[in-house]
């Protein structure tokens, strides 16, 4: 144990005491894409006692350029990212507790996941989940580290409830559309910079070295050779609905939640049925095989139907991904046609 972490223990801000604290802490990672896999690998190697990785998606070829825990075999077999990441993390460090959860994080899920967690790391690909995370962070007093990137640009910020402005304070209104990995692409080094900032902040929080926290909003464009920070304390709003004096946590209210989502970096719509029951994949597999002109494949986690030049993937938790379209109404039509509400 000591040999394994010896170089980290030699680093005086961590030391023996910090290493012990790391081994007693639980980190929740929301998302196992580019940021998620990079953060997860660093934290697992660092010896964080428990790591929970949550993701709703599965591995595809377009992920392999930057999502470091995945292999070609994961893409061929369409292994859910949470499963593939957790398996790889266990290979890296068998001494810690690693949990992979195939799950689309919404209100109900975040309220369960956050219990007993010391910090959360944002590795999501959308603002809705980040705002959910932000409200859960405030409600349960759990710090979280924002990170995001597109192209060669990225940014990071650490939210400590009761101390810093929250993400809603910084964001103002929720952006409509904007750049995604889908429209402007993404290079791996931009991911690694953001992840490095996130993991470093996470380590400071986990060893309880609060005075070393960055407290600024950090951003860079590694292709344009720019990087800077902005002091944001001034942005803390007393009337913020998420962290202000009369906060209501609006993003934990189902009224403010969408049921469909276009996934970042993918020509894909996700539909999440209101019914929270489990989907019987064997039954679905048999039913879809009867459809003329369709090709059905499956594994124990999902069923894949290729039809009409589109691909539908159904998960056990009820969600369906409709690939090769960004049109939500078309996606719903295909969903209703083949999967059924």
């Amino acid at each position: 144990m000591k040999e394994r972490y010896s170089r980290q223990i030699l680093f005086s801000p961590i030391g023996e005491n910090g290493q012990r604290k790391l081994s007693e802490k639980h980190v929740l990672l929301i998302g196992a894409g580019a940021l998620g896999t990079s953060n997860a690998e660093m934290l697992a190697r660092a010896g964080v006692g428990k790591i929970t990785v949550v993701d709703r998606d599965y591995v595809e070829w377009s992920n392999l350029q930057r999502q470091q825990l995945f292999t070609e075999r994961d893409a061929v077999e369409r292994i859910p990212k949470a499963v593939a990441a957790a398996d790889q993390l266990r290979e890296i460090n068998s001494e810690i507790n690693i949990s992979g959860k195939i799950m689309d994080v919404s209100i109900h899920e975040i309220e369960e996941l956050v219990e007993g967690v010391d910090i959360m790391i944002d590795a999501t690909d959308n603002f809705e989940t980040r705002l959910l995370l932000n409200d859960a962070s405030q409600k349960y007093q759990v710090p979280w580290v924002y990170g995001a990137c597109t192209g060669s640009y990225g940014l990071s910020y650490t939210v400590v409830p009761g101390q810093t402005p929250c993400f809603s304070c910084l964001l103002g209104s929720v952006p409509m559309g904007g750049e995604t990995c889908d429209t402007v692409g993404i290079i791996s080094p931009a991911v690694q910079i953001v992840a490095a900032y996130q993991t470093t902040e996470a380590l400071k929080l986990l060893v309880e070295d609060y005075k070393s926290l960055r407290r600024n909003l950090f951003y860079f464009d590694i292709w344009k050779n720019q990087q800077s920070t902005i002091k944001v304390e001034k942005l803390k709003k007393d009337d913020c609905p998420s962290c202000g004096q009369a906060c209501t946590y609006p993003h934990l209210d189902p009224v403010n939640l969408s049921r469909t989502a276009v996934l970042c970096g993918r020509d894909t719509v996700q539909i999440r049925p209101a019914n929270k029951g489990k989907r019987n994949l064997d039954e679905l597999f048999d039913r879809l095989q009867a459809i003329e002109g369709g090709k059905v494949e499956g594994n124990s986690f999902l069923v894949n139907l290729t039809i009409e030049g589109r691909r539908l993937v159904a998960f056990q938790d009820g969600r369906v991904l409709i690939h090769d379209t960004k049109d939500i109404s078309e996606a719903k039509t295909l969903y209703n046609r083949y999967i059924g509400g």
């Binding site: 940021l35 603002f127 597109t150 952006p175 904007g178 750049e179 995604t180 800077s228």
Partner: peptide, 9 residues
């Protein structure tokens, strides 16, 4: 300084 938030990750 101009910093804009992005969603990717």
């Amino acid at each position: 300084e101009i910093v804009h938030f992005v969603g990717g990750g």
